[in-house]
Design a protein around this nucleic acid. Sequence first.
DNA 1: AGGGTGTCCTGGAGGC
DNA 2: TGCCTCCAGGACACCC
Length: 276
Amino acid sequence: MPELPEVETVQRALAPHIDGQLIHKISFFTPRLRQELKEDDFNQTFQNKKITALIRRSKYLIFQIEGTQWILSHLGMTGSWRIVAKDEKRLKHEHISLALNEGDQELRYCDPRRFGEFRIIKAAQDDQDPQALSHLGPEPFWNEYNATYLFAASRKKTKPVKNFIMDPSVVCGIGNIYASESLFRAGISPLRKIGKLRRVDCEALVKQSRIILQSAIEAGGTTIIDFQAPDGSEGWFHRQLNVYGRKDEACFKCQTPIKKITQAGRSSFYCPRCQK
DNA sequence: AGGGTGTCCTGGAGGC
DNA sequence: TGCCTCCAGGACACCC
């Protein structure tokens, strides 16, 4: 399940292989992912155009392509990209192929649950976000995401803190796993109302979420079930998870059994003793 | 308007 | 073994 560190890992692995490459042909092997996939539209727009960069914003990959249109890719739950030789046999759930250069190499997208996205968006001006992503809040590593910002943004809000930090318009890229893990490290219960957080809590939360995301990136992303980096290597960050997926197991700090609850339809894990 | 729920999807786990 | 049900998750539409 790709969250920010996984998407960052994919971006870093893929970019050197596709920057500067020409798109020879785009093929779809499924009528739709989250949206309809129309081969003609993509080929008319991108055939023989050069990929100038692959960047990450939030959990999106953006294929920057010469011209006025770009491609937005989201890995959903189970999406992955890999680079293969053109004659390599297609895997069961491979839905997209970008033949590069003279067609000798292909970038393939595999997604068993088809929760991913692949769509054409308008290119952005300068360093701005493309319009399709204008709703996104700051990245966790940007200076704008700090305790002052989080404290101000959360006043008079009544949502549980867990749901608040998972809102990409507040701060992007913190999914279910890292939300639980950040709160554990910050010593904050996921049930706390965000508006009741003190400034010191905001400071701890910003700091801990950064530390955890950074170490996950350095570890090459979390592999729980589905995630694989494009070179086939597995991330190993799951070995460092303190609470996620550890229902009824002993807290590493205090031995209290980890609790699992449901918030906004998503499972949260926390230590009822360490997190207040 | 803010907060919560339902929907999309399918593989895997667990129950009987 | 085989069938059934449930669950996982991000983004977004929708409801109260």
